[in-house]
Amino acid sequence: MTGNPTSRDYNKASVLDVLLSRAPLTRNEVIEFTGLSKATVSRAVEDLRADGCVVDGGVDELTGRGRRSTYLDVPGALGHVAGISFGMQTTCVLVSDLRGREIRHITVPTMDHQEVRSAAEWLIGLMAEAAETAEGPLRQVVAAVPGRVRGGTEVFGPRESMKVFAGSALQRELTGLVSAPVLLDSDANASLLGILVENAALRNAALFSLSSILNFAGCTERELLRGRTPSFGDIGVLFSGVGDEPLEEVLSTGGLLRFARGRGLDLERIEDLWLQPHDEVARSEVLDSFTTALVTAVSAVAVTLDPESVFCVGRLRPLIEEVLPEVRRRLDKSLPTVPEVKVAPQVLGLSVARGAMHASLGLVGDRLRDAVLEARRQGHRADQPSPAF
């Protein structure tokens, strides 16, 4: 007999949501987080246990009188996910269980790939190495790239050295090599998602990734903003306020390197701008232009999206930290309401991979919830547990 999901199904899904996001938990904690009755939680837990979605995870310490409570946990055998940061200089692959507990991460220099197939095979090899001790099947892969991404499959606007990855070939090749769904996302989106996970109070925010390219991400009510066209997020084409330069040419590593050399600074790499001594006049001119461009970018986002916070990440972080007081001063003079502008602490490669991992977990959690609610339409009885997938 088939039908629509029942209240029992929705209760079961609610308990699963809480366990996936917070386990290990005692039954009393599950009751507190879901607002469901003791009997309802017990029934849902037993259903989920029969599905293989819940196991006992130890016993809490006895404090005062009464019986100790058994922790409920999500078993490793339910599966694992992978988050990949595929950058121009550094690649990081992180594998976690479905509770988001890291199993292993691997960070290596990015190899120079001339073919999409070889790059995909290399990434899958790193993922297999990171997942050697993982239990259960691979459930989802999200790979974050330095470019704009539409629909989880198509890459737009990568730097010249990564032009081979423009389009959907990378997603297709990765999908063909693993028995799990694979989606692409921008490194900026992954960075912002990682920040949202760490800060539950943050609602509306924007993020600029100032690295090989200038990339942008935003969220409203904690939902990442995704445009209908590939042009969404291409803030680098906007006028920077510095000569005839667009933002991309002042707020990316390659662009700023060219800009600084054009102002007489002898730089081998962009890091020399803050690691080596230089002519003070020429360096001050470059820093002033960088400050102007950053103020322009933040102002454009502030008046269109009204974020409470604007985060800056990427390889140009040391320079951002140097000019940030002046950026704030100029914004205070030009905007009636100024968002909090700050540099987000990040670990090269790993922070983006962690955000991609959280994106994977969100997708798997949605599928698990859908499986619980769709079981009724597949002919399961109310007293019959349904498979998780």
Score class of each variant (00 low, 15 high):
Gly87Leu: 10
Gly87Tyr: 09
Gln89Arg: 10
Cys92Glu: 08
Cys92Ile: 00
Leu94His: 02
Val95His: 00
Leu98Tyr: 03
Arg99Phe: 04
Gly100Leu: 00
Arg101Leu: 06
Glu102Asn: 02
Arg104Glu: 15
His105Val: 08
Ile106Lys: 01
Val108Met: 09
Thr110Gln: 09
Asp112Leu: 13
Asp112Val: 15
Asp112Trp: 07
His113Lys: 10
Gln114Lys: 10
Gln114Ser: 15
Val116Ala: 15
Val116Gln: 12
Val116Ser: 14
Arg117Ala: 15
Ser118Phe: 11
Ala119Pro: 11
Ala119Ser: 15
Ala120Asp: 12
Glu121Phe: 09
Leu123Ala: 11
Ile124His: 02
Ile124Gln: 03
Ala128Lys: 11
Ala128Gly: 13
Glu129Trp: 02
Ala130Glu: 06
Ala131Met: 02
Ala131Gly: 06
Thr133Lys: 10
Pro137Asn: 05
Pro137Leu: 07
Pro137Met: 03
Leu138Lys: 01
Arg139His: 06
Gln140Leu: 08
Gln140Met: 14
Val142Met: 07
Ala144Asp: 06
Val145Ser: 05
Pro146Val: 12
Pro146Gly: 14
Gly147Trp: 03
Val149His: 01
Gly152Met: 01
Thr153Lys: 02
Phe156Tyr: 11
Arg159Asp: 13
Glu160Leu: 07
Glu160Ala: 13
Ser161Ala: 11
Ser161Cys: 04
